[in-house]
């Protein structure tokens, strides 16, 4: 009896946790599905530089790139003057476009299924999804979506638990520390890479 009631309480807790998630299935999940279908259409239609430009358009439209850039710079953001920030964000956008067009370019007919959507009190929505592969295990991809002035925007992508923004932040942070704590060498390096 006691066990049964305990189980009932557990079920209640579980229901409480999962119900608001399903109630808010709307804009964030729709955004992910729209991005996935646009990316697939783009990859089928274009290659090389055109693809990269297309991916860049998608990133600018659906991702919150300034926010991602700011997160990636971490504590150094506050100490960076606005003109430098502008250059940094521009270089990061190019770097991201290149990275994602390469990642998405590996696409070969997999399907992305959107799963659980959890709405968090701090305004972030986490959308779980699975990329089913023809061979082997499906890949878990989590999308972090934040409501901005112009509608929901993606702020982070986690592939098998590895956050792209956190990895970038660790990467940039280490580079900045290795160059006397200055952001300028990082911006120059990113601009140099963006140029070729």
């Amino acid at each position: 009896m006691q066990l049964a009631s305990r189980r009932a309480v557990l079920c209640l807790v579980a229901a409480f946790v999962s119900v608001p998630a399903h109630a808010a299935d709307g804009p964030a999940a729709a955004l992910i599905e729209r991005v996935a279908s646009e990316v697939i259409a783009l990859i089928k239609a274009k290659t090389g530089k055109d693809r990269e430009a297309g991916i860049r358009t998608i990133l600018v439209t659906y991702f919150d790139l300034p926010f991602m850039g700011q997160s990636a710079l971490g504590t150094h953001w506050a100490a960076t003057p606005p003109p430098q920030r502008e250059r940094f964000l521009k270089a990061v956008a190019t770097a991201e476009a290149r990275a994602y067009s390469e990642r998405f370019g590996q696409y070969s007919g997999q399907t992305l299924t959107v799963g659980r959507v959890s709405n968090r009190p701090n305004g972030v929505t986490v959308v779980d999804s699975k990329l089913s592969q023809s061979n082997g295990q499906p890949i878990a991809i989590q999308w972090e979506v934040r409501e901005t002035g112009q509608g929901p925007r993606i702020t982070d992508v986690k592939i098998e638990g590895v956050s792209m923004v956190m990895t970038r932040r660790s990467d940039y942070n280490s580079y900045i520390q290795g160059h006397g704590g200055k952001v300028e060498p990082l911006i120059q390096e990113l601009e140099k890479r963006a140029a070729n």
Partner: peptide, 17 residues
């Protein structure tokens, strides 16, 4: 390819994974 400090990026990705 997408990092400026491969060592640091890999360290972060490994820890997260």
């Amino acid at each position: 390819k997408n990092s400026v400090d491969y060592y640091a990026a890999l360290r972060s990705a490994y820890t997260q994974q």
